[in-house]
Design a protein around this nucleic acid. Structure first.
Lengths: 196, 196
DNA sequence: CCTCCAGGTTAACGGTCGCTAACCTCCCTG
DNA sequence: CAGGGAGGTTAGCGACCGTTAACCTGGAGG
C-alpha cells in the first residue's frame, strides 16, 4: 500500500505551483508561461492537463472549500466528548490548514470573484455550510450568544486564524506547535469574550 | 470654514473609485478605462491627474498606512488614562477604519507587492511601526506576555478586525455600532486569552 | 478680445497574454 | 515491429491593456 508516498502527479505539481504563484502575485498577475516554467515545462504544455488558466483556479478553490467542509463534517461526526471538545477540534483543524496551506488560505478569500458563475456558487455554498457548522458548534458551547452575533464572531475568528500568511514568511516566530497553541488560545478567548 | 464639506476634488473621486475597483477585482483585473468610466471621464483622461495606474495604487497604499500610523501616534500622545484605555483607543481607531474604509483595508494586505520598490519599502516601514506601537501597548497591559507572542497576537487581532469585508456586504448584521462593540470585545478577549 | 492652460477627447502603438495549431518523440501494447 | 496515444515543443494569432500623441474646448486673466 504505497498509496500516499507516491511521487506527485504532474497535475498536482502544477496545482501546487499555481497556488503559490497566484497567492504571491494574484491570479491576473501570473502568466501561464510562468506556471509552466515553475514545473519545468513551458507555457502551452499546461493545456494537456487543464482546460485553461481559469480551470486551475477553479480546481484549487473548489478543492479547498471541499477539504475544509469534509474535515469539519468528519469532526462533527466523530464528536463524542461534548460541544466544548468539538469546538476545539474545529479550531484545531482550521489552524492546521492555515499553517500548512498558507497559499490556499490566501487564495480562498482573495480570488473567489475570478471564478465562473457556477464554480463560484459552489464554493460560496460550501463556505456558507462551513460557517453554519461553526455557528452551531459555537452556540452549543455558548447558548446565550444570539445567532447573528455568533456569525460575526465566527467570521472574525476565521480572520484571526487566517492571519498566518501575514506572519513574517518562514517564521522567526515561536515555532509551529507554539504558534498553533497560541492561535487556539486566541480563538477561544475571542469566543469567550463574545459570549460574556 | 467650509473646509471639509467641499465637493470632492477629481483626484479624490478617482482614488475612491479606483480603491473600490481594485478591491473588487484586483489591481491587474481593472483597466484604466474602467476607472475613468467610474468617474465619468474616459481612459487616458486619468493621466491629467496621475502619472499612471501604479501611481494610483501607490498613493492609496501609502495614504492608508500613513493614516493608520498618524491616528495611532495621536492616540498614544493623547493617552492620559493608563495603558488599558490606550489599548482600547487603538482598537477603536482600527475598528473605525475597518468599518468605514473596507476597500482600503482590503487593498492594504492584498496589493502591496504590486508597488515600486521604494513605495513598498515605505509602506512596509509604516506597517512595521504600527505593529510595534500596538505590541508595546499590549505589553503594557499584559507585561507577562513575551514579545514574540505579543507580536503574533497583534497580527492575529488585525486579522480579526480586518474580517469586516467578509461580513455579507451591506450588513444584515447587528448594525454598525453593535458590530463595532462586538469586534472590540472579541479583540480584548483574544488579548486576554493570550496573556493568561 | 486675445491668450493660455486645465482638463478633456480619440487614435494608435507596442507589448503582453491566453490559447490554438501543427508537429515531434517516446513508450506502451497487440 | 507497427502504431497510437500521452505529453511535450515552437510559432503565431487575436484580444486587450497601459501609455503616448495630437487635437479640442471653455473659461479665467491681462
Amino acid at each position: 500500500m504505497a498509496t500516499r508516498t507516491d511521487a506527485p502527479t504532474r497535475r498536482e505539481q502544477i496545482l501546487r505551483e499555481a497556488a503559490r504563484l497566484f497567492a504571491e502575485r494574484g491570479f491576473h498577475g501570473v502568466g501561464v508561461d510562468e506556471i509552466g516554467a515553475a514545473v519545468g515545462i513551458s507555457g502551452p504544455g499546461l493545456y494537456r492537463h487543464f482546460a485553461g488558466k481559469d480551470a486551475m483556479l477553479a480546481e484549487l478553490l473548489v478543492g479547498i472549500s471541499g477539504q475544509l467542509m469534509t474535515g469539519a463534517k468528519r469532526r462533527v461526526a466523530e464528536a463524542e466528548q461534548g460541544p466544548d471538545a468539538l469546538l476545539d477540534s474545529l479550531i484545531e483543524g482550521h489552524i492546521d490548514f492555515a499553517l500548512d496551506d498558507r497559499d490556499l488560505i490566501t487564495l480562498h478569500d482573495r480570488e473567489l470573484d475570478r471564478l465562473r458563475d457556477s464554480d463560484r456558487k459552489l464554493v460560496r455554498q460550501l463556505q456558507r455550510q462551513y460557517v453554519e457548522l461553526w455557528v452551531e458548534s459555537v452556540r452549543k458551547v455558548y447558548p446565550e450568544l444570539a445567532e447573528p452575533h455568533a456569525r460575526v464572531a465566527v467570521h472574525a475568528v476565521f480572520g484571526l486564524l487566517n492571519s498566518t500568511p501575514h506572519l513574517s514568511r518562514p517564521g522567526s516566530l515561536p515555532g509551529r506547535a507554539a504558534t498553533a497553541q497560541m492561535l487556539h488560545k486566541l480563538a477561544r478567548g475571542a469566543f469567550a469574550a463574545a459570549a460574556e
